[in-house]
Amino acid sequence: MTIRSRIAAAFAVASLALVFAGQSHATVFAAWQVANVPFGDTLNLRKYPSATSQKQAAYPNGTVLQMTGRCTGGVNLLDIASQPAWKQRQTVRFRWCEVWHDPAKNGEFVTGWAYGKYITPY
């Protein structure tokens, strides 16, 4: 086997591993939806967990969001998923939670942050 074919084989194996790793990562998202936003307003997703951070996108009530599971204060949405919905909402009410979204709707997903007061388990 030549060096070139060994490199090509190694690249193929590494690429396949990345495909499977990406698929398993995507299955850990938690679905939550935008709720409790005042009539005529939208939930702003921010670049960082701060109300003064750059706005990336805005979503109306009812929009389903893909949450990474990570919230400020060490809260993980996947860890609290077995609790009743009211308890989950109470846990994240004053925290920022990370969202995986496509603000430009061009297939380029990024992470952003939503304030917990305006999201609820889906």
Rank of each mutant, 00 (worst) to 15 (best):
M1K: 06
M1L: 03
I3W: 11
S5D: 15
R6H: 05
A8K: 11
A10G: 14
V13I: 15
A14Y: 06
S15T: 10
A17L: 11
V19M: 06
V19I: 15
F20Q: 08
H25L: 14
H25D: 09
A31N: 14
A31W: 11
W32V: 06
W32E: 02
Q33F: 10
Q33H: 15
Q33Y: 10
A35L: 01
V37M: 09
F39N: 09
F39D: 13
T42P: 00
L43G: 11
L45H: 05
R46V: 04
K47Q: 10
P49Y: 12
P49C: 07
P49M: 07
P49K: 07
S53I: 04
K55C: 06
K55Q: 14
Q56D: 10
Y59F: 14
P60F: 07
T63N: 03
T63I: 02
L65V: 04
Q66M: 11
M67K: 03
R70D: 07
G73N: 05
V75C: 00
N76L: 04
L77R: 04
L78E: 08
I80Y: 01
S82K: 13
P84L: 08
W86N: 14
Q88W: 02
V92N: 02
V92L: 07
V92F: 05
W96A: 03
E98M: 11
V99R: 03
V99G: 00
H101T: 12
K105R: 13
K105T: 09
F109V: 12
T111Q: 11
T111D: 13
A114W: 01
Y115C: 03
K117I: 07
Y118T: 03
Y118P: 00
P121R: 08
P121M: 07
